[in-house]
């Protein structure tokens, strides 16, 4: 089986915390190498402490085993550092459909600027009349917001 086919297979491996995302379109899978009998899958974590990474590693190995690829090695790299800028428009739309406001473009130039000034578009009604409830949410990658237009609380996939 060649690299392209394996990457296509890995598109079935979901992020356990945000199941509309798969590990390939998220940019967690960086590379696949086939060396004789070994298949090396290089991945990078979203956040250093992301508790989903162990499950993701196991799911990748299980997926490849299910098609008869037994010798799988997972290699973790930190460079280039994962960024939400890798998410495609299609992936962002999937997040929106799932009820999570997708990340905008990252801008770290003024990181001391209060997060509470952020305007995030409501994924349900599209209004930007929203406010920040908390910069920190149920997972490391999400913040909490409230839409004043449709009175819905919602989550936002933070830009990093």
């Amino acid at each position: 089986m060649d690299k392209e086919k394996i990457i296509n297979l890995l598109k079935d491996v979901q992020d356990p915390e945000v199941p509309v995302l798969d590990v390939v379109s998220m940019g967690v899978v960086r590379d696949v190498k086939i060396e004789q009998a070994r298949t090396i899958v290089t991945i990078t974590p979203t956040y250093t402490g992301c508790p989903a990474m162990n499950t993701i590693e196991k799911d990748i190995v299980d997926k490849l085993k299910s098609v008869g690829i037994e010798k799988v090695e997972i290699k973790t790299v930190f460079s280039p550092a994962w960024t939400t800028d890798w998410l495609s428009e299609e992936t962002k739309q999937k997040l929106r459909d799932y009820g999570i406001a997708p990340p905008g473009k990252t801008d770290e130039s003024d990181f001391l600027q209060s997060f509470f000034t952020k305007k995030v578009e409501c994924p349900f009604c599209g209004s930007d009349n929203t406010k920040v409830t908390s910069e920190f949410g149920s997972t490391a990658c999400k913040s909490l917001h409230f839409c004043s237009e449709c009175s819905q609380p919602f989550e936002h996939f933070k830009c990093i």
Partner: peptide, 13 residues
């Protein structure tokens, strides 16, 4: 470099 992304929002907090 990876950690720095996290550190920046720690400082902000």
């Amino acid at each position: 470099a990876k950690s720095l992304k996290e550190i920046k929002y720690h400082v902000r907090h």
